[in-house]
Design a protein around this nucleic acid. Structure first.
Lengths: 113, 113
DNA sequence: ACTCCTCGTAAGCAGTGACTTACCGTAAGT
DNA sequence: ACTTACGGTAAGTCACTGCTTACGAGGAGT
């Protein structure tokens, strides 16, 4: 991952790896520590650490230090950039649909009662 | 891109490339042909074709053949897997928030009037 | 039929990113 | 103090992917 000033880019990029999503799912499910997560995922513990770092950098996960452990938790606001992006898509779809309905209704038989 | 039976995986993976999102944005904006898109993007025309193929495979874009041209258009339903995934995240956030509110209210002073 | 235009596909290359092993720092328990 | 458990970081490897150039297929117009 290079620099990433763009929040949307970093969120999508981070979510695009399946293993990383698996890690995220475990965090979501309450498995909060790196070692514990590693037991449920087919990669080594350092790999999990690296994924957790990526999730942190994308701001979709939080750490709380707890003695020698680090407890990770979900940070749902982190998904906002992605959600906004999707909303744009849906809006567009709606706009085009209503435009289509309008022209269709007009060209066909004008205003239906 | 390997095989991808998983729709969520293919959508996220496809959206994760910035150039590809730029191509998608142009399609959204009504620039429907490969050659025309290539004029607005800092890569070669074949590169654009490859991106369009990826978008097709992920089912977030459609083609209509029009003589010697191919007109691409947005297919918003293609985003559904991603939207569902996000919804899960938000739901989870809501659940945890209300659980927190409940225990907090209970432990603190019982049911507020 | 010949040319022009549009565009997908093949092949090859270079950069990136997801892993692994090895290592080191640090808190907790005895 | 010593040991044990946790876990982040470094270095190196390998596969993948996004790019380019070169090519070929197929409609449209003359």
């Amino acid at each position: 991952m290079t620099y990433d000033i763009d929040p949307l880019q970093s969120v999508i990029e981070t979510l695009s790896d399946p293993t990383r999503r698996a890690v995220l799912d475990l965090v979501r499910a309450g498995v909060s520590t790196a070692g514990e997560i590693a037991k449920h995922v087919p990669v080594s513990r350092p790999a999990v650490s690296q994924h957790l770092k990526a999730l942190l950098d994308a701001h979709i996960v939080l750490v709380r230090i707890d003695g020698t452990r680090r407890r990770y938790s979900l940070r749902p606001e982190g998904f906002s950039p992605l959600q906004s992006y999707l909303n744009d898509m849906w809006d567009q779809a709606l706009d085009e649909f209503s435009a289509y309905v309008e022209t269709y209704a007009e060209k066909r038989d004008g205003e239906p009662k």
